[in-house]
Amino acid sequence: MNLTVNGKPSTVDGAESLNVTELLSALKVAQAEYVTVELNGEVLEREAFDATTVKDGDAVEFLY
């Protein structure tokens, strides 16, 4: 899956889609429990991480 992460191209191997929690784990995001996630310009509530799917071509920003 090809994404733009914090403005840079990134690839997650072996996945066509992941939820936000899985993406944080796959990318080994440090202190993931404290990060705010913006997906395609929309800031996500932490409670929505498990239910929100990240797909090929999406833009993700991790805000600390």
Rank of each mutant, 00 (worst) to 15 (best):
A32H: 11
K8E: 09
F49R: 03
T21K: 08
T21V: 07
V43I: 12
N40M: 02
F62T: 04
D50K: 06
G14H: 09
T53M: 14
L44I: 15
V12Y: 08
D13W: 15
A30E: 12
V43S: 06
T36M: 10
T4N: 06
P9D: 06
G57D: 04
G57P: 01
R46F: 07
L3W: 02
V35E: 03
Y34E: 08
D50L: 07
A30C: 15
G41P: 01
E38G: 07
D50P: 08
T4D: 04
E45I: 09
L27H: 03
A48R: 11
L39M: 03
L39C: 04
V20H: 03
K55W: 06
T4S: 07
V12F: 11
E42D: 07
V35T: 05
A51R: 14
L3D: 02
V5F: 03
K8L: 11
T21N: 11
D56H: 07
Y64M: 09
A15G: 09
K28I: 06
D13H: 15
Q31D: 14
V5M: 04
Q31Y: 15
A59I: 15
L24P: 00
Q31F: 15
A15T: 10
E22S: 07
E38I: 15
A32E: 08
G14Q: 07
L39T: 00
A59C: 14
N40T: 01
G41F: 04
V43L: 11
P9I: 09
S17R: 11
V5W: 03
D58A: 04
G14L: 08
F62V: 11
V54R: 00
E16G: 11
L39R: 00
A15H: 13
L63N: 12
A26D: 02
G14T: 09
Y64L: 09
T4H: 07
N19I: 04
A32V: 12
Q31G: 14
G7S: 05
E22P: 00
A32T: 11
F62P: 06
V43H: 08
R46G: 04
A15N: 08
L39S: 01
N6P: 02
F62S: 02
E61W: 15
A26T: 08
Y64Q: 09
S10Y: 15
G7A: 03
L3T: 03
Q31H: 15
R46Y: 07
V60P: 04
T53R: 13
E16V: 14
S25A: 14
K28E: 08
M1W: 02
A59G: 06
V60Y: 04
L24W: 00
A32S: 12
L63K: 13
N2Y: 10
T53D: 07
K55S: 07
L63E: 11
F62R: 01
K28S: 09
Y34K: 09
S10V: 15
T53L: 14
S25L: 14
T4Q: 07
A59T: 14
Y34V: 12
V43Q: 08
N6E: 03
Y34H: 12
D58H: 03
L18E: 00
G14R: 08
E45N: 12
L23F: 03
G7V: 02
V29P: 05
A32L: 12
L39V: 06
G41T: 02
G14E: 06
V54A: 02
E33D: 11
G57W: 03
N2L: 10
E38A: 15
E45M: 12
E47N: 11
V35R: 02
T11Q: 11
L27S: 00
V43Y: 07
V60C: 06
Y64D: 12
D56E: 09
S10H: 15
R46D: 01
E22H: 06
G7E: 03
N2V: 12
A30M: 09
Y64H: 11
Y34D: 08
M1F: 11
V37S: 00
F49Y: 12
V37T: 01
E16S: 14
V60R: 00
T52C: 06
L3P: 02
L44P: 00
F49S: 03
